[in-house]
């Protein structure tokens, strides 16, 4: 049984909700948290409850429903209420929302992180993508659309391994 806290406690609830929501990881890249991925936009007091705001990477990202459910479950497990998770669209997510920690985590997991400055020039630029395994820049794109909506498939000519590249967006 969870009771509604008096208004003064909402600020404390907010802090705790942010801490817990930050620990939820991306279901398709389980080494990076939604905070480092830039999906967790804000945790604010909204009227009589705390609102956790998340934003989609791609509009069709099938992981968003799972992420929303996992946040709700994590908050419920911690006994936090009343909290609501809401999807916000603006400002639009870009790969620049990924933190430095997040980029390192992607790299260590074998996914080449996106080039920073994800404007339209970088989107289609000829930026070299270093191989996350051996570091070689002798790499080529095999397919612009990869294993998930946010990744492209690349191949390293030096170590001969294919790898995922987190698309600039």
């Amino acid at each position: 049984m969870v009771t509604t806290p008096p208004p003064g406690d909402l600020a404390a609830l907010c802090v705790e909700a942010r801490r817990i929501a930050s620990t939820v990881v991306d279901p398709e890249i389980p080494v990076i948290s939604i905070a480092d991925l830039g999906i967790l936009r804000d945790v604010v007091v909204a009227g009589d409850h705390v609102e956790v705001r998340i934003t989609p990477t791609y509009t069709g990202c099938p992981a968003m429903n799972t992420i929303k459910t996992e946040i709700e479950q994590a908050l419920a497990t911690a006994g936090l209420a009343p909290v609501q998770v809401r999807l916000v669209l603006s400002p639009a997510w870009t790969t620049d929302w990924i933190t430095e920690t997040g980029r390192r985590q992607l790299h260590d997991y074998g996914i080449a992180p996106p080039a920073p400055g994800g404007d339209r020039a970088a989107l289609f630029g000829t930026t070299t993508v270093p191989c996350p395994r051996c570091g070689s820049t002798a790499t080529t794109q095999l397919a612009a659309f990869g294993s998930t909506a946010c990744k492209a498939l690349w191949r390293c000519a030096a170590c001969r391994e294919p790898f995922d590249y987190f698309k600039c967006h």
Binding site: P56, Y58, T59, L89, S90, P91, A92, W93, T94, L123, H169
Partner: peptide, 8 residues
């Protein structure tokens, strides 16, 4: 906001 997502 939707347009800003979709154009990418």
């Amino acid at each position: 906001a939707i347009a800003a997502k979709a154009e990418k």
